[in-house]
Simulated scan of single mutants.
Amino acid sequence: MNKTLAVLLGVSGLGNAVLGYLLYQLDRKTAVLLKELRAVVAPAQATPVPIVVKSPPSPRPQLPPQPEPAPQPITAALPPPKPEPALATEPMLSGAVAAGLPVEQDAAADTVMDGADLGSLCIRAVSQRGPRNRADHRHRRDSYLLHAFREFPRPVLLSAVAAGNPVGSRSQEGAVLVCRSLATHLGALAAPLAGAVGDSSSPAPDSAATGDLILTALRGAAGNLDRLAARHQVGTDDIAVEIAVLLSPLGGLRHRRHLLFTVGSGGLRTLRDGVWQDDDSPAASAWSAATTLPSALSTLRWRVLDTAPGDVLTLGTGATLRLFAHPATADALAAAWHPAVPGLHCYLHDTVTAVPGDADRTLITLWHTPSTH
Protein backbone atom coordinates (compact mmCIF):
# COMPACT_ATOMS: atom_id res chain seq x y z
CA MET A 1 0.00 0.00 0.00
CA ASN A 2 2.73 2.37 0.94
CA LYS A 3 4.66 1.38 -2.13
CA THR A 4 1.69 2.04 -4.34
CA LEU A 5 1.16 5.45 -2.82
CA ALA A 6 4.77 6.32 -3.28
CA VAL A 7 4.54 5.45 -7.00
CA LEU A 8 1.44 7.59 -7.44
CA LEU A 9 3.04 10.47 -5.67
CA GLY A 10 6.05 10.11 -7.86
CA VAL A 11 3.93 10.00 -10.88
CA SER A 12 1.95 12.93 -9.64
CA GLY A 13 5.04 14.99 -9.13
CA LEU A 14 6.22 14.18 -12.58
CA GLY A 15 2.83 15.17 -13.98
CA ASN A 16 2.95 18.48 -12.29
CA ALA A 17 6.37 19.16 -13.67
CA VAL A 18 5.18 18.29 -17.17
CA LEU A 19 2.08 20.38 -16.79
CA GLY A 20 4.06 23.34 -15.58
CA TYR A 21 6.42 23.05 -18.51
CA LEU A 22 3.49 23.01 -20.94
CA LEU A 23 1.94 26.05 -19.36
CA TYR A 24 5.25 27.84 -19.59
CA GLN A 25 5.54 27.13 -23.30
CA LEU A 26 1.93 28.20 -23.86
CA ASP A 27 2.54 31.49 -22.10
CA ARG A 28 5.60 32.18 -24.31
CA LYS A 29 3.67 31.51 -27.53
CA THR A 30 0.75 33.58 -26.33
CA ALA A 31 3.07 36.45 -25.56
CA VAL A 32 4.62 36.24 -29.01
CA LEU A 33 1.21 36.20 -30.68
CA LEU A 34 0.07 39.18 -28.65
CA LYS A 35 3.22 41.04 -29.59
CA GLU A 36 2.67 40.35 -33.30
CA LEU A 37 -0.97 41.34 -33.03
CA ARG A 38 -0.04 44.64 -31.42
CA ALA A 39 2.39 45.30 -34.25
CA VAL A 40 -0.40 44.89 -36.83
CA VAL A 41 -3.16 46.74 -35.02
CA ALA A 42 -1.12 49.66 -33.70
CA PRO A 43 -0.48 51.43 -37.12
CA ALA A 44 -4.19 51.22 -38.09
CA GLN A 45 -5.15 52.81 -34.80
CA ALA A 46 -2.52 55.47 -35.23
CA THR A 47 -4.35 56.95 -38.33
CA PRO A 48 -7.71 58.26 -37.19
CA VAL A 49 -10.67 57.98 -39.67
CA PRO A 50 -12.10 61.42 -40.31
CA ILE A 51 -15.83 61.81 -39.68
CA VAL A 52 -17.58 63.99 -42.27
CA VAL A 53 -20.80 65.63 -41.19
CA LYS A 54 -22.91 66.91 -44.09
CA SER A 55 -24.61 70.17 -43.43
CA PRO A 56 -28.13 70.77 -44.90
CA PRO A 57 -28.17 72.70 -48.22
CA SER A 58 -28.54 76.38 -47.86
CA PRO A 59 -31.91 77.70 -49.18
CA ARG A 60 -31.92 79.23 -52.73
CA PRO A 61 -32.25 82.97 -52.56
CA GLN A 62 -35.73 84.09 -53.59
CA LEU A 63 -35.80 86.68 -56.38
CA PRO A 64 -38.48 89.33 -56.28
CA PRO A 65 -41.31 88.66 -58.84
CA GLN A 66 -40.73 90.34 -62.21
CA PRO A 67 -43.65 92.02 -63.99
CA GLU A 68 -44.68 90.47 -67.37
CA PRO A 69 -43.56 92.48 -70.37
CA ALA A 70 -46.27 94.61 -71.92
CA PRO A 71 -47.46 93.38 -75.37
CA GLN A 72 -45.74 95.13 -78.21
CA PRO A 73 -47.85 96.51 -81.05
CA ILE A 74 -47.63 94.63 -84.38
CA THR A 75 -45.86 96.84 -86.83
CA ALA A 76 -45.92 94.45 -89.84
CA ALA A 77 -48.21 95.65 -92.61
CA LEU A 78 -51.30 93.49 -93.09
CA PRO A 79 -52.37 92.60 -96.66
CA PRO A 80 -55.11 94.85 -98.00
CA PRO A 81 -58.61 93.33 -97.92
CA LYS A 82 -59.81 91.73 -101.13
CA PRO A 83 -62.27 93.89 -103.03
CA GLU A 84 -65.85 92.70 -103.27
CA PRO A 85 -66.61 91.15 -106.67
CA ALA A 86 -68.43 93.52 -108.95
CA LEU A 87 -71.79 92.55 -110.37
CA ALA A 88 -71.45 91.15 -113.84
CA THR A 89 -72.76 93.38 -116.58
CA GLU A 90 -71.46 91.26 -119.47
CA PRO A 91 -72.29 87.66 -120.43
CA MET A 92 -70.84 85.48 -117.69
CA LEU A 93 -68.84 82.27 -117.87
CA SER A 94 -70.83 79.31 -116.59
CA GLY A 95 -68.34 78.28 -113.93
CA ALA A 96 -69.87 79.96 -110.89
CA VAL A 97 -71.58 78.10 -108.11
CA ALA A 98 -75.19 79.05 -107.52
CA ALA A 99 -75.58 81.69 -104.81
CA GLY A 100 -79.28 81.07 -104.26
CA LEU A 101 -82.04 78.54 -104.80
CA PRO A 102 -84.95 79.15 -107.16
CA VAL A 103 -88.41 79.40 -105.65
CA GLU A 104 -90.63 78.60 -108.66
CA GLN A 105 -93.10 75.74 -108.36
CA ASP A 106 -91.42 73.49 -110.96
CA ALA A 107 -87.86 74.35 -109.90
CA ALA A 108 -85.22 71.76 -110.81
CA ALA A 109 -81.65 71.00 -109.80
CA ASP A 110 -79.02 73.55 -110.84
CA THR A 111 -76.95 70.91 -112.70
CA VAL A 112 -77.58 67.30 -113.69
CA MET A 113 -75.31 64.94 -115.60
CA ASP A 114 -75.12 61.33 -116.72
CA GLY A 115 -73.11 59.01 -118.93
CA ALA A 116 -72.22 55.45 -119.82
CA ASP A 117 -69.60 53.50 -121.78
CA LEU A 118 -71.57 50.94 -123.77
CA GLY A 119 -68.90 49.08 -125.71
CA SER A 120 -68.06 51.11 -128.79
CA LEU A 121 -70.64 53.80 -128.01
CA CYS A 122 -69.84 56.18 -125.16
CA ILE A 123 -72.35 58.74 -123.90
CA ARG A 124 -72.01 61.89 -121.80
CA ALA A 125 -74.87 64.28 -120.93
CA VAL A 126 -75.21 67.48 -118.91
CA SER A 127 -77.85 70.13 -118.29
CA GLN A 128 -76.88 73.25 -116.37
CA ARG A 129 -78.61 76.42 -115.32
CA GLY A 130 -77.31 79.50 -117.10
CA PRO A 131 -75.46 82.29 -115.28
CA ARG A 132 -78.26 84.82 -115.78
CA ASN A 133 -80.86 82.52 -114.30
CA ARG A 134 -78.53 81.94 -111.37
CA ALA A 135 -78.06 85.66 -110.83
CA ASP A 136 -81.84 86.19 -110.98
CA HIS A 137 -82.55 83.14 -108.77
CA ARG A 138 -84.58 81.61 -111.59
CA HIS A 139 -84.55 77.89 -112.22
CA ARG A 140 -83.25 75.85 -115.15
CA ARG A 141 -85.79 75.35 -117.95
CA ASP A 142 -83.87 72.68 -119.89
CA SER A 143 -84.01 68.92 -119.54
CA TYR A 144 -82.59 65.80 -121.19
CA LEU A 145 -83.31 62.08 -121.26
CA LEU A 146 -81.21 58.98 -121.98
CA HIS A 147 -83.33 55.88 -122.48
CA ALA A 148 -82.52 52.39 -123.80
CA PHE A 149 -85.29 50.75 -125.85
CA ARG A 150 -85.77 46.99 -125.84
CA GLU A 151 -88.75 47.11 -128.20
CA PHE A 152 -86.50 47.38 -131.29
CA PRO A 153 -84.96 44.27 -132.90
CA ARG A 154 -81.62 45.37 -131.41
CA PRO A 155 -81.15 47.72 -128.40
CA VAL A 156 -81.57 51.38 -129.35
CA LEU A 157 -80.57 54.46 -127.35
CA LEU A 158 -82.84 57.50 -127.15
CA SER A 159 -81.02 60.81 -126.58
CA ALA A 160 -83.35 63.79 -126.14
CA VAL A 161 -82.71 67.43 -125.17
CA ALA A 162 -85.54 69.87 -124.49
CA ALA A 163 -85.51 73.62 -123.89
CA GLY A 164 -88.53 75.16 -122.20
CA ASN A 165 -89.74 78.72 -122.58
CA PRO A 166 -87.21 80.83 -120.60
CA VAL A 167 -90.09 82.73 -118.96
CA GLY A 168 -92.72 79.98 -118.91
CA SER A 169 -94.23 79.27 -115.51
CA ARG A 170 -94.31 75.48 -116.16
CA SER A 171 -91.81 75.12 -118.97
CA GLN A 172 -89.32 73.03 -117.00
CA GLU A 173 -92.06 70.58 -116.17
CA GLY A 174 -93.01 70.63 -119.84
CA ALA A 175 -89.43 69.86 -120.91
CA VAL A 176 -89.31 66.81 -118.64
CA LEU A 177 -92.74 65.64 -119.78
CA VAL A 178 -92.07 65.87 -123.52
CA CYS A 179 -88.88 63.77 -123.23
CA ARG A 180 -90.65 61.01 -121.32
CA SER A 181 -93.71 61.13 -123.57
CA LEU A 182 -91.59 60.69 -126.68
CA ALA A 183 -89.86 57.68 -125.11
CA THR A 184 -93.25 56.07 -124.57
CA HIS A 185 -94.63 56.81 -128.05
CA LEU A 186 -91.43 55.89 -129.91
CA GLY A 187 -91.27 52.61 -128.03
CA ALA A 188 -94.76 51.82 -129.26
CA LEU A 189 -93.59 52.52 -132.85
CA ALA A 190 -90.38 50.50 -132.57
CA ALA A 191 -91.24 47.82 -135.15
CA PRO A 192 -91.96 50.16 -138.09
CA LEU A 193 -89.09 52.50 -137.11
CA ALA A 194 -86.49 49.71 -136.92
CA GLY A 195 -85.37 50.22 -140.51
CA ALA A 196 -84.32 53.80 -139.78
CA VAL A 197 -81.95 52.80 -136.94
CA GLY A 198 -79.29 50.10 -137.16
CA ASP A 199 -76.40 49.06 -139.38
CA SER A 200 -75.65 51.66 -142.06
CA SER A 201 -75.15 48.88 -144.61
CA SER A 202 -78.85 48.01 -144.46
CA PRO A 203 -81.26 49.49 -147.05
CA ALA A 204 -82.34 53.08 -146.52
CA PRO A 205 -85.72 53.49 -144.81
CA ASP A 206 -88.79 54.77 -146.60
CA SER A 207 -88.70 58.53 -146.23
CA ALA A 208 -92.44 59.26 -146.17
CA ALA A 209 -93.23 56.44 -143.77
CA THR A 210 -90.47 57.49 -141.39
CA GLY A 211 -91.69 61.08 -141.33
CA ASP A 212 -95.25 59.99 -140.58
CA LEU A 213 -94.08 57.79 -137.70
CA ILE A 214 -92.13 60.67 -136.16
CA LEU A 215 -95.17 62.97 -136.48
CA THR A 216 -97.32 60.36 -134.75
CA ALA A 217 -94.94 60.25 -131.77
CA LEU A 218 -94.77 64.06 -131.64
CA ARG A 219 -98.57 64.39 -131.68
CA GLY A 220 -98.76 62.09 -128.69
CA ALA A 221 -96.21 64.19 -126.79
CA ALA A 222 -97.96 67.43 -127.78
CA GLY A 223 -101.25 66.07 -126.44
CA ASN A 224 -99.60 65.43 -123.07
CA LEU A 225 -98.34 69.02 -123.04
CA ASP A 226 -101.87 70.32 -123.69
CA ARG A 227 -103.18 68.28 -120.78
CA LEU A 228 -100.38 69.66 -118.56
CA ALA A 229 -101.40 73.23 -119.40
CA ALA A 230 -105.06 72.44 -118.69
CA ARG A 231 -104.22 70.86 -115.34
CA HIS A 232 -102.29 73.94 -114.22
CA GLN A 233 -104.70 76.35 -115.95
CA VAL A 234 -101.93 78.10 -117.87
CA GLY A 235 -101.48 79.01 -121.52
CA THR A 236 -99.50 76.95 -124.01
CA ASP A 237 -96.64 79.46 -123.92
CA ASP A 238 -96.08 78.58 -120.27
CA ILE A 239 -95.37 74.94 -121.19
CA ALA A 240 -93.87 75.49 -124.68
CA VAL A 241 -90.80 73.35 -125.44
CA GLU A 242 -88.19 72.89 -128.17
CA ILE A 243 -87.04 69.31 -128.69
CA ALA A 244 -84.17 67.49 -130.41
CA VAL A 245 -84.04 63.68 -130.49
CA LEU A 246 -81.44 61.17 -131.70
CA LEU A 247 -82.06 57.43 -131.97
CA SER A 248 -78.82 55.39 -132.07
CA PRO A 249 -78.26 51.62 -132.36
CA LEU A 250 -76.31 49.94 -129.59
CA GLY A 251 -74.08 46.88 -129.89
CA GLY A 252 -70.81 46.14 -131.65
CA LEU A 253 -71.55 47.84 -134.99
CA ARG A 254 -68.69 49.28 -136.99
CA HIS A 255 -71.01 51.58 -138.99
CA ARG A 256 -74.13 52.96 -137.33
CA ARG A 257 -77.26 54.52 -138.76
CA HIS A 258 -78.90 57.16 -136.52
CA LEU A 259 -82.25 58.92 -136.80
CA LEU A 260 -82.37 62.62 -135.87
CA PHE A 261 -85.46 64.83 -135.61
CA THR A 262 -86.04 68.29 -134.14
CA VAL A 263 -88.75 70.85 -133.47
CA GLY A 264 -87.26 74.27 -132.84
CA SER A 265 -83.65 75.49 -132.97
CA GLY A 266 -81.99 72.46 -131.37
CA GLY A 267 -79.90 70.09 -133.47
CA LEU A 268 -76.67 68.19 -133.98
CA ARG A 269 -72.98 68.92 -134.52
CA THR A 270 -70.58 66.25 -135.82
CA LEU A 271 -66.88 66.13 -134.95
CA ARG A 272 -64.96 64.09 -137.53
CA ASP A 273 -61.15 63.79 -137.57
CA GLY A 274 -60.98 66.59 -135.02
CA VAL A 275 -62.96 69.07 -137.17
CA TRP A 276 -66.57 70.18 -136.66
CA GLN A 277 -68.66 69.46 -139.77
CA ASP A 278 -71.21 71.78 -141.39
CA ASP A 279 -74.40 70.00 -140.38
CA ASP A 280 -77.74 70.99 -141.84
CA SER A 281 -79.22 71.74 -138.42
CA PRO A 282 -81.32 74.91 -138.07
CA ALA A 283 -79.36 78.13 -138.07
CA ALA A 284 -78.52 79.46 -134.62
CA SER A 285 -81.39 81.63 -133.46
CA ALA A 286 -83.04 82.86 -130.31
CA TRP A 287 -85.77 80.80 -128.63
CA SER A 288 -89.13 81.36 -130.32
CA ALA A 289 -92.56 80.09 -129.26
CA ALA A 290 -93.50 79.91 -132.95
CA THR A 291 -91.27 76.84 -133.42
CA THR A 292 -92.13 74.82 -130.33
CA LEU A 293 -94.40 72.07 -129.12
CA PRO A 294 -97.31 71.64 -128.65
CA SER A 295 -98.38 73.80 -131.58
CA ALA A 296 -95.59 73.98 -134.19
CA LEU A 297 -95.55 70.38 -135.46
CA SER A 298 -95.13 71.71 -138.99
CA THR A 299 -91.58 72.83 -138.15
CA LEU A 300 -90.41 69.21 -137.78
CA ARG A 301 -87.02 68.44 -139.36
CA TRP A 302 -85.56 64.95 -139.53
CA ARG A 303 -82.80 63.02 -141.28
CA VAL A 304 -80.83 59.79 -141.18
CA LEU A 305 -77.05 59.94 -140.65
CA ASP A 306 -74.27 57.36 -140.55
CA THR A 307 -71.18 57.30 -138.33
CA ALA A 308 -67.91 55.35 -138.29
CA PRO A 309 -65.37 54.78 -135.50
CA GLY A 310 -63.84 58.09 -134.48
CA ASP A 311 -66.94 60.21 -135.09
CA VAL A 312 -68.38 62.34 -132.28
CA LEU A 313 -72.01 63.53 -132.25
CA THR A 314 -73.19 66.38 -130.03
CA LEU A 315 -76.94 66.90 -129.65
CA GLY A 316 -77.86 70.24 -128.10
CA THR A 317 -80.55 72.82 -127.55
CA GLY A 318 -80.50 75.90 -129.76
CA ALA A 319 -78.87 78.05 -127.08
CA THR A 320 -76.16 75.44 -126.59
CA LEU A 321 -75.42 75.03 -130.30
CA ARG A 322 -75.02 78.79 -130.67
CA LEU A 323 -71.86 78.41 -128.59
CA PHE A 324 -70.23 76.52 -131.47
CA ALA A 325 -70.36 79.76 -133.45
CA HIS A 326 -67.48 80.98 -131.26
CA PRO A 327 -64.30 79.62 -132.92
CA ALA A 328 -62.35 79.55 -129.65
CA THR A 329 -65.08 77.52 -127.92
CA ALA A 330 -65.49 75.12 -130.84
CA ASP A 331 -61.71 74.55 -131.07
CA ALA A 332 -61.41 73.98 -127.31
CA LEU A 333 -64.17 71.36 -127.33
CA ALA A 334 -62.73 69.64 -130.39
CA ALA A 335 -59.34 69.35 -128.69
CA ALA A 336 -60.92 68.07 -125.45
CA TRP A 337 -63.18 65.47 -127.09
CA HIS A 338 -60.98 63.99 -129.81
CA PRO A 339 -59.56 61.40 -129.93
CA ALA A 340 -59.99 60.45 -126.25
CA VAL A 341 -63.36 60.15 -124.50
CA PRO A 342 -63.42 62.36 -121.38
CA GLY A 343 -64.62 61.16 -118.02
CA LEU A 344 -67.82 62.55 -116.54
CA HIS A 345 -66.08 65.18 -114.42
CA CYS A 346 -63.94 66.32 -117.37
CA TYR A 347 -66.98 66.54 -119.63
CA LEU A 348 -68.76 68.71 -117.08
CA HIS A 349 -65.66 70.88 -116.75
CA ASP A 350 -65.45 71.29 -120.53
CA THR A 351 -69.06 72.35 -120.88
CA VAL A 352 -68.91 74.67 -117.86
CA THR A 353 -65.68 76.60 -118.22
CA ALA A 354 -65.13 76.57 -121.96
CA VAL A 355 -68.58 77.90 -122.82
CA PRO A 356 -69.52 81.56 -122.44
CA GLY A 357 -73.15 82.62 -122.47
CA ASP A 358 -76.13 83.50 -120.30
CA ALA A 359 -78.68 80.83 -121.22
CA ASP A 360 -79.13 77.33 -119.87
CA ARG A 361 -77.04 74.80 -121.77
CA THR A 362 -78.00 71.18 -122.35
CA LEU A 363 -76.16 68.73 -124.56
CA ILE A 364 -75.56 65.02 -125.07
CA THR A 365 -72.39 63.77 -126.76
CA LEU A 366 -71.88 60.33 -128.29
CA TRP A 367 -68.49 58.86 -129.20
CA HIS A 368 -68.43 56.10 -131.83
CA THR A 369 -65.20 54.42 -130.79
CA PRO A 370 -63.40 51.12 -131.39
CA SER A 371 -64.36 48.38 -128.94
CA THR A 372 -61.62 49.57 -126.54
CA HIS A 373 -60.87 53.21 -125.86
Rank of each mutant, 00 (worst) to 15 (best):
4 T>L: 12
4 T>Y: 01
11 V>D: 06
15 G>K: 04
17 A>S: 12
19 L>D: 09
28 R>I: 13
44 A>R: 13
44 A>E: 12
48 P>V: 10
59 P>V: 09
61 P>M: 10
65 P>I: 04
66 Q>N: 06
67 P>Y: 03
73 P>F: 03
75 T>Y: 07
78 L>A: 12
86 A>T: 11
103 V>A: 04
109 A>S: 12
110 D>R: 01
110 D>N: 07
121 L>N: 01
127 S>Y: 02
131 P>M: 07
132 R>K: 13
133 N>I: 01
140 R>A: 11
157 L>G: 10
163 A>S: 15
170 R>L: 14
173 E>R: 10
174 G>W: 07
185 H>V: 04
189 L>S: 07
194 A>S: 15
196 A>D: 03
200 S>V: 05
205 P>L: 10
207 S>N: 05
218 L>S: 04
221 A>H: 06
226 D>H: 13
237 D>M: 01
243 I>N: 02
268 L>Y: 03
272 R>L: 03
284 A>G: 13
288 S>R: 12
289 A>L: 14
299 T>V: 05
299 T>H: 15
315 L>I: 07
320 T>E: 10
322 R>I: 01
322 R>N: 09
328 A>Q: 12
329 T>K: 03
330 A>Q: 09
332 A>H: 03
333 L>F: 05
339 P>W: 00
351 T>D: 06
355 V>F: 12
363 L>Y: 00
370 P>E: 06
373 H>L: 08
